[in-house]
């Protein structure tokens, strides 16, 4: 590390301009890693959560396992995988997906459990089959809570992607790590701030998406059904 670098404390704006194509490429990589993780996370969580919702006994073991996964610091999780999957995108994705599961499963189950019983009963009384009940009544009504989970999972993943720089991926984390190694604040800030901006933007987009797909929950704010209540013990997965 070159501590003697003369212009150390200042930001080199020209570096940003000179490297804009690299920055853009890493930005896209960051988005790809995030979207892939959340998408796979959803593909896994939805069936598991639906099963756990219908068969209550399954919920505790499921959340225990995913909870332990969630508690393991990301660097350790990646380290577990490295000897087997190496410095590949699989290593990064297995870890990242692992972190989305607890959040998504909890919120999907909470969303389903929060469907008002009168709506459920009326639907049954009108002759909804159990599949129709799930996809036409329960899942749509669970959407706001599920979307809250998707938002949390996505923002979490955006942050965690930076850590994958240590296993050769990293998206914007690449700049943070190389900035640390060369004592170059410009790169650190570019990596951190763009990651922050990405997290905030994606969160905003998901809020917008949620509003679009749940127009009913917007109308007459005062009469909104309260969101279903669940436990609060999920800590943020930060590192």
């Amino acid at each position: 590390m070159n501590l003697a670098q003369a212009d150390r404390p200042t930001i080199k704006w020209s570096w940003i301009g000179d490297n804009s194509d690299k920055i853009f490429a890493r930005f896209i990589e960051h988005i790809e890693l995030t979207v892939l993780a959340v998408a796979i996370g959803l593909l896994i969580s939805v069936p598991l959560a639906i099963y756990a919702y219908r068969h209550r006994w399954f919920y505790t073991p499921l959340t225990s396992v995913t909870g332990i996964l969630y508690t393991i610091p990301s660097l350790a999780l990646f380290a577990f995988l490295l000897p087997y999957t190496g410095l590949t995108v699989q290593t990064a994705e297995i870890g990242l997906v692992g972190y989305t599961l607890l959040i998504l499963i909890r919120n999907i189950v909470a969303g389903l459990a929060g469907v008002p019983p009168d709506v459920r009963e009326a639907a049954r009384g009108m002759g909804f089959s159990s599949g129709q009940m799930l996809w036409r009544v329960e899942m749509p009504l669970a959407l706001p809570v599920i979307m809250a989970g998707v938002r949390l999972a996505t923002v979490t993943t955006v942050g965690l992607v930076t850590v994958t720089a240590l296993i050769g991926k990293g998206g914007l984390g690449f700049f943070i790590l190389s900035g640390m190694r060369t004592d170059f604040i410009t790169a650190i800030l570019v990596g951190s701030i763009l990651s922050l901006v990405l997290a905030v933007t994606v969160d905003g987009l998901l809020v917008y998406l949620e509003r679009r797909i749940t127009p009913w929950s917007r109308s007459r704010a005062g009469q909104r059904r309260p969101a279903p209540k669940t436990q609060s013990s999920i800590g943020p997965r930060v590192a």
Binding site: G159, G173, L196, P236
Partner: peptide
């Protein structure tokens, strides 16, 4: 929530 801890 949005700030990456690695960046901090």
């Amino acid at each position: 929530r949005a700030l990456p801890s690695f960046g901090i």
